[in-house]
Design a protein around this nucleic acid. Structure first.
Length: 233
DNA sequence: AACGAACGCAACCGCATGCGA
DNA sequence: ATCGCATGCGGTTGCGTTCGT
């Protein structure tokens, strides 16, 4: 990328590379004082040797107080899959439906987990991780009943059905195996018959407003009351 | 324990779009 | 109408971390 200059160096007077805590502090103070926007004036007002673009990106992707930290949950993953099937690589649009998540984060997540050719390996890893975690849990709680889901005997027919739906709707990438496995896991955790990656959305909902209120991502049980309506386009 | 491969994520770039002068 | 600046977006890259052998 920036090979000639390297990270944390100056180019055209602008610093590049990883942000330091001091720089973050300056930027946060600036935004608290002046609000978001006018990014090009940040360097003049704060003394930060960062371009406006760089400041905006740092704020939007990392410093914003409303950002949600931590791993993408299976619910969020399902939403990402659904919305990607609907809108393609419109990451910012997808991100608006996932409060606290950034387009960059979602984009990275998608590329890592669902980019063509990566799903099988990820699915295997996810399965291995899950099995390992469950084994540890079982050791801790020896009275735990046997978990059928540990076998992850994937219902091939159902998965094929999902993939057919995606293909019929001219979606290049069928549903990821990892998502499917996560779905199996979620199905086990929540016995109510809900298909999280085929989650519903009432017809005619606006692209931004409805999802924000529909999904309370901290409340897994909430999923169970959603109608099961497919909405592929 | 060591090492290479794969992963995850922050940050950059170029281009598109919006908006005011 | 158009020009220039600011901002937003999607794609890409570099590097630290984790995982598997």
């Amino acid at each position: 990328m920036d090979g000639q200059f390297g990270w944390g160096t100056l180019e055209d007077g602008w610093r590049k590379g990883p942000w330091t805590p001091q720089e973050d502090k300056l930027l946060i103070e600036h935004v608290n004082l002046h609000g978001e926007g006018r990014w090009n004036s940040v360097s003049k007002l704060t003394g930060l040797r960062r371009s406006g673009k760089s400041c905006r990106l740092r704020w939007v992707n990392y410093l914003r107080p409303d950002l949600k930290r931590g791993k993408i949950t299976p619910q969020e993953e399902s939403i990402i899959l659904d919305l990607h099937a609907r809108w393609g690589n419109r990451w910012s649009t997808i991100a608006r439906s996932l409060p606290g998540r950034t387009d960059n984060e979602i984009k990275n997540y998608w590329r890592t987990h669902f980019k063509k050719g990566k799903t099988s390996k990820n699915a295997e890893r996810a399965r291995a991780r899950f099995l390992k975690q469950q084994q540890e849990q079982q050791q801790q709680q020896q009275q735990q009943p046997p978990l059928q889901v540990l076998q992850l005997q994937v219902d091939q027919e159902q998965q094929q059905q999902y993939n057919n739906i995606y293909q019929q709707n001219q979606v290049v990438q069928p549903i990821g195996e990892q998502a499917y496995i996560d779905e199996m896991i979620m199905a086990y955790m929540n016995p109510n018959p809900i298909s999280s990656s085929m989650t519903s959305m009432s017809e005619g909902s606006s692209e931004d407003g409805a999802w924000g209120s529909l999904w309370n991502l901290d409340d897994v049980q909430h999923n169970a009351v959603q109608d099961q309506v497919l909405y592929f386009y």
